[in-house]
Nucleic acid binder design. Structure first.
Length: 431
RNA sequence: UCCGCGAUAGCUCAAUGGUGGAGCAUCCGGCUGUUAACCGGAGGGUUGCAAGUUCGAGUCUUGCUCGCGGAGCCA
């Protein structure tokens, strides 16, 4: 008898097959029982008629609770009434692992309860769809850079000092060398990589100990950071828009089934094609003022400001040339206006906020040393970084894309906690 | 850190200051095409904790604990 998976049933119509999985739901009507089997690839209705199988097997189904693991055997047939369009005319049922009182019932639950049971919640249809889309986005990201001659270069996760100086970091004791910190960005190391390999990207977890309590924040999240030698801000924006187009169009093309399961309205995602609108910070401030927001030039854009700006466009918008004061020390100043940094943020539509932050980097040794001094950063810790400017400095640029915000936007989710298998937030580090 | 909101059965929620209920889940019974199946029955409670007001508190007051949303910070 052929062993198979639910997703492959179309190749087995009329055949006897066996499948293994978990009981997703069941219904009974006296002499007929329906077991909905879940095997990780889909759902399948298995039908047990009292006359067709032994009394023992027929009664077994009564005992088995939701999420019991089982093996079923039977004949595959097309059945428009059943979920997935196929049905199993079942002839056998074997128990692998019994389950009783599974906490997540096929009814509504609160988010807190579901997050306490995250290890089980992952079995639900929507969560499975999200994880599949996350996986495909990761693959699209890696393919995008790999296909364009980038080399993946993993930065350290334990670092001796703050990358950007401002954020609060997780701290740990590192043997006799004093304190070490969990990285908040691989960027500085990516710059070293770009000087070695030309085009590199880092892709890994990053950590922020900020006490953020919003739907847009996690303490542990994944970031992909390309860095390119001999590139300026325009090259950086060109790369970012091609990158976003590639990710979104790939998901639209290959993950329709999952997007439907999530009830995602994809009309706005379909708009994500080059060119993306590019506006300066000055223009962004104008937009805010036109919308009646009392915004002071020189401040960073807040969450609501970002939403107002992105609502003016039907695709992601790039905002460039921010006031240097609100941006990191390593960003290069605009040669035409010393108050501006050659930075770019990409704001996702539909209120999903900043998904990309990038810049051209300061490549002049003396200027960079002055910035480090201005911001009271420990210069000793940055000597290696300054070496990149001492030995063959070149213009270079890069950006960071937050994976979870991208997943949340593409999936149309309310909260970032569903975009990662086990979210780490200020008041949650379990399960 | 600041502002706002919340905590009642395993879960989701009701209950004018006056005998704490319903749906789902669980258990028992019924039904040969169910789609979060349905119908009948049963069990299930220190109303987050502590004090106060009151003849009487799930409900009003105060404090505490825990959580949620937002601000700041950022991807």
């Amino acid at each position: 008898m052929q062993k198979t998976y639910i997703k492959d049933l179309s190749n087995h119509v009329g055949e006897e097959v066996s499948l293994k999985g978990w009981i997703f739901n069941k219904r009974s009507s006296g002499k007929i029982k329906f077991i909905i089997l879940r095997d990780g690839t889909g759902l399948l209705q298995c039908v047990y008629f009292k006359g067709n199988i032994s009394e023992e097997v027929f009664n077994l189904a009564d005992r088995l609770g939701q999420e019991s693991s089982i093996e079923v055997k039977g004949k595959v047939k097309g059945e428009p009434r059943a979920v997935g369009g196929y049905e199993l005319d079942a002839s056998d049922l074997k128990v692998i692992g019994e389950a009783h009182d599974y906490p997540i019932t096929p009814k509504e639950h609160g988010v807190e309860f579901l997050m306490d049971n995250r290890h089980l919640w992952l079995r639900s249809s929507k969560q499975i769809a999200i994880m599949r889309i996350r996986h495909r986005i990761v693959k699209a990201i890696r393919d995008f850079f790999d296909d364009r001659g980038f080399t993946l270069m993993d930065p350290p996760i334990l670092t001796p000092a703050a990358c950007e100086g401002t954020s609060t970091l997780f701290e740990t004791e590192y043997f006799d060398l004093g304190k070490a910190y969990l990285t908040q960005s691989g960027q500085l190391y990516a710059e070293a990589g770009a000087m070695a390999l030309g085009k590199v990207y880092t892709f890994g977890p990053t950590f922020r100990a900020e006490k953020s309590k919003t739907r847009r924040h996690l303490t542990e999240f994944w970031m992909v950071e390309p860095e390119v030698a001999f590139a300026d801000l325009n090259d950086d924006m060109d790369l970012a828009e091609e990158f976003l187009e590639c990710i979104v169009q790939t998901i639209l093309k290959e993950k329709q089934e999952e997007l439907i399961a999530l009830e995602r309205d994809t009309t706005k995602l379909a708009n994500v094609k080059r060119p993306l609108p590019r506006i300066s910070y000055d223009e962004a401030v104008e937009i805010l003022k036109r919308n009646g927001i009392d915004f002071q030039w020189g401040n960073d854009l807040g969450g609501t400001d970002e939403t107002v700006i992105s609502n003016q466009f039907d695709k992601p918008v790039m905002v460039h040339r921010y006031p240097a004061e609100v941006k990191a020390f390593y960003m290069k100043r605009d040669p035409n206006n010393d108050k501006l940094a050659l930075a770019v943020d990409v704001l996702a539509p539909e209120g999903y906020g900043e998904i990309i932050g990038g810049s051209q980097r300061e490549d002049n040794l003396e200027v960079l040393q002055a910035r480090i001094k201005e911001q009271n950063l420990p210069q000793q810790a940055f000597e290696w970084y300054l070496d990149l400017r001492r030995y063959g400095s070149v213009p270079h640029a890069g950006f960071g894309l937050g994976l979870e915000r991208t997943v949340g936007w593409i999936c149309g989710l309310e909260h970032l906690r569903e975009t990662i298998p086990f979210a780490r937030m200020i008041y949650r580090n379990t399960p």
